[in-house]
Computed example of a mutant assay.
Amino acid sequence: MNLNLTTPQNETNENPNSPTTKTKSELFNLGQGSSVLYIPKLLVYEESWNHFHYFNKHIPWTRPTIKVFGRSLLQPRDTCYVASEGLPELVYSGYQPRAYSWDEFPPLKKLLDEVHQALPGSRFNSLLLNRYKGGNDYVGWHADDEKLYGPTPEIASVSFGCEREFLLKKRPKKTPQAKRLDGESPSKRVKKSKDPDQHTFMLKHGSLLVMRGYTQRDWLHSVPKRVKADSIRINLTFRLVL
């Protein structure tokens, strides 16, 4: 289902003193305890570009080798991991990233504060950054359902740069718990239908998308390859490690 075809419940940012722009947020109820909150303009335009240029230049990006279905391949995007001290180590697809400190990147700490102000009651202590250099970079169908995030993780995703599609589809009931499918690109476009089991969001520069409740248990998400996506996109996903 395309973003424009969904009927959301509109909300306003709860904190009027937040440094974010005063924009309406949109709450999408996916059913059975799953929901997505979308704020198209979390940050003002100039601040968003300042973040983009800093992250693109100063983050120690790496493109690791991962294992998918028993074979090794180069991850189709750059990545970096930041976490508070003392947290359990993150491992995905056979890869264990180095955990950098928040203090090493002051703009990340500032952005973390801004996300917390936009989402009262939320708390995040880790961050996975991804950089998509162009349309051939992607992330395959997966769910962020690692045990260290708990049964109902809240995942807050902030995007900068090139606008890219973010796809959601209902996980088939008979499949096992989600495996990361970075070697399997969601290249086919999701049809703009009224199918309640698939949704498409166009993530804008400076936007915030939050997955809540049982979204990681019941849904899969991806950012597919797109030929027309000819510039860099940087995405930051804030998580709470329990």
Rank of each mutant, 00 (worst) to 15 (best):
M211F: 13
T65Q: 13
G33V: 03
G140R: 11
K179R: 15
G31F: 10
N56L: 07
G121Q: 06
D103H: 14
K179Q: 15
R217S: 13
K67D: 13
A156L: 00
G94T: 11
V158G: 00
P107H: 06
A83V: 02
P8V: 00
K225E: 11
T21M: 06
E163I: 09
T21A: 08
G140W: 11
R164Y: 05
I232S: 01
D113Q: 14
D145Q: 10
F201C: 01
A99M: 02
A156F: 08
S126V: 05
H51F: 11
P153V: 01
P88T: 06
P120V: 03
K170L: 14
G33C: 08
G183N: 12
I59Q: 02
R171K: 09
R164W: 01
Y92F: 14
D195F: 05
R180W: 15
N125H: 12
G121N: 06
S35K: 11
S207I: 03
P196H: 15
P224L: 10
C80K: 04
K24Q: 15
E165M: 10
D195I: 03
L74H: 09
C162S: 04
K192C: 15
F201A: 02
P40M: 05
D78V: 00
M211Y: 09
Y92Q: 01
R212L: 04
P64Q: 07
P186R: 10
I39G: 01
N56A: 09
V91S: 14
Y92T: 07
L242Y: 14
K110C: 10
H116I: 10
Q198I: 02
R180P: 15
S34V: 03
Y132P: 00
L203A: 04
F166D: 04
F201Y: 04
L240Q: 13
P97Y: 07
I66N: 06
Q117H: 06
R131A: 05
P16Q: 12
E104R: 01
V158K: 03
Y132D: 03
T62Q: 14
L168W: 09
F201I: 05
R71H: 11
L242S: 14
R212Y: 11
P172R: 12
L127G: 01
H116W: 13
H142S: 01
R239M: 06
L168D: 02
L181A: 14
S72D: 07
L127C: 00
A99I: 07
S34I: 00
H221V: 01
K67G: 04
H142M: 04
P151K: 05
F52I: 04
D144T: 00
N10M: 14
S48F: 05
F160M: 02
E184P: 08
K194A: 11
S185A: 13
A83Y: 09
